[in-house]
Simulated assay, not measured.
Amino acid sequence: MDENRKIKLGISIGDLNGIGCEVALKTFQDSRMLDFCTPIFFASSKTIAAQTKALHMDMRYNGIQEASKAIDGKLNVVNVWKEIPNLQFGEATEEAGSYAIKSLKAAVEALKSGDIDVLVTAPINKNNIQSDDFKFPGHTDYLAEELEGESLMFMVTDGLKVGLLTDHLAVKDAPAAINPILIRTKVRTIEKSLTMDFGVRSPKIALLGINPHSGDNGTIGKEDEEVLKPVIKEMSDAGHFVFGPYAADSFFGSDAYKNFDAILAAYHDQGLIPFKTLSFGNGVNYTAGLNKVRTSPDHGTAYEIAGKGEADHSSFKEAVFSAIRIFRNRTEYAELTENVLQKQRTRR
Rank of each mutant, 00 (worst) to 15 (best):
L119I: 05
F134T: 14
S202W: 03
L341I: 09
D261V: 01
V77P: 08
Y267H: 10
D249P: 15
N291I: 10
G289H: 08
T277R: 14
V78I: 01
A288E: 02
T140A: 08
V293Y: 07
P203Q: 15
I205D: 13
N291H: 14
P212R: 15
M235L: 14
D249A: 11
F36E: 04
D2C: 03
V320W: 02
P212Y: 15
E66M: 11
I305Q: 00
L9E: 04
L164H: 11
H240G: 05
A334R: 10
L75K: 02
I19C: 07
V320E: 02
E109Q: 13
V187W: 02
I181Y: 12
F260C: 13
D298N: 03
G253K: 11
P203T: 14
T157F: 08
D141K: 02
A288Q: 01
A323Q: 05
M57R: 03
S193F: 05
A67Q: 07
K26H: 07
L165V: 12
T301G: 12
G73Q: 13
K126I: 04
G20Q: 11
E304I: 01
G63Y: 06
F260L: 10
G253A: 11
R294Y: 02
F321M: 06
M59A: 10
G90A: 13
A266C: 14
R32T: 15
T277P: 09
L278N: 05
K69V: 00
A100K: 01
D117I: 10
D197W: 10
K233T: 14
K8G: 00
V156C: 13
Y257F: 14
E332H: 13
T189L: 06
E338V: 04
D167L: 04
K161G: 08
L87F: 06
